[in-house]
Design a protein around this nucleic acid. Sequence first.
DNA 1: AAGCTTCCCCGTAGACTCCC
DNA 2: GGGAGTCTACGGGGAAGCTT
Length: 267
Amino acid sequence: METEVLYSGYSYHDKPMYPDEWIGNDYYLLRLQTEGNCRICLDGRSERLVPGDLLFLRPEETYRLVVEENEEGKAGSGDYYVICKGAWIDRWASRGDKPKRAHIQADGSVLDIWKRIVLERRRIGENNGELVDYLLRALCLTLERAFKQANGGKSDNVRGVAAHRMKRYIEEHATQTFAVDEVAASVRLSPSRAAKLFKEAFGETIVKYAIRVRLSIAIERMQYSGLTLEQIAESCGFGSYPYFYRCFMKRFGVSPREYREEASPIA
DNA sequence: AAGCTTCCCCGTAGACTCCC
DNA sequence: GGGAGTCTACGGGGAAGCTT
């Protein structure tokens, strides 16, 4: 196995905690703050962690976690964690410049993988080590993408995050018909502002990117399904076949049928 | 007959500018 | 920086014709 998860889970502290000891071991730690807040002492500095703050510590790196009471005298801090080791993690950790701490957009895709790792680890005796191995790699790569997006230019941070969230919205909704208004609403911006941000971030318009995603889905279905081209057009988010045909011709220079005849392994 | 292609027209997206 | 308004290009869909 290329990786090994030693501990994983969700922890919640609802009482103040001021430990003296420093936490650290021979393994890697991934910790994502999901609820409330706490204070972390790391590299001689004390910083507050809020939801979305990710810690990535290498073997031998130590930290101290403090959960304090708020103004109302209540404490609350929730986080997901994974403690792991392995050759793959070693290679991944040494690749690029990974910060010890980053604020990420902790959306469903990150938490879904994290929860799945926790769940699979509870399934004792199911010989699922390989599955956990790949889930951990998926988690690391998803987190890496998240903090790359978060670090995409400090001054453009908020705009960059909005652009990436729109991109993800398009990818998730590409097979449905949606309007630019809806994409803009998903990041609480006006349509004109959203369109401008997206173009600045990715160099193409929202509609053109949506068409590109839809065409890539259509290509797969043309090659590996027995659906008619009209069915494929509708299932890929193109409102009508004629529109799909025109987009396809414009992009590839051949008609969908010609493309399918040349490319399909089941033709 | 079913599936595919093309034409045409209306509505909307995107670029641009102005204003707050 | 961000919203509102305007104008233009093109996206989107209906319908008719063509091909297999």
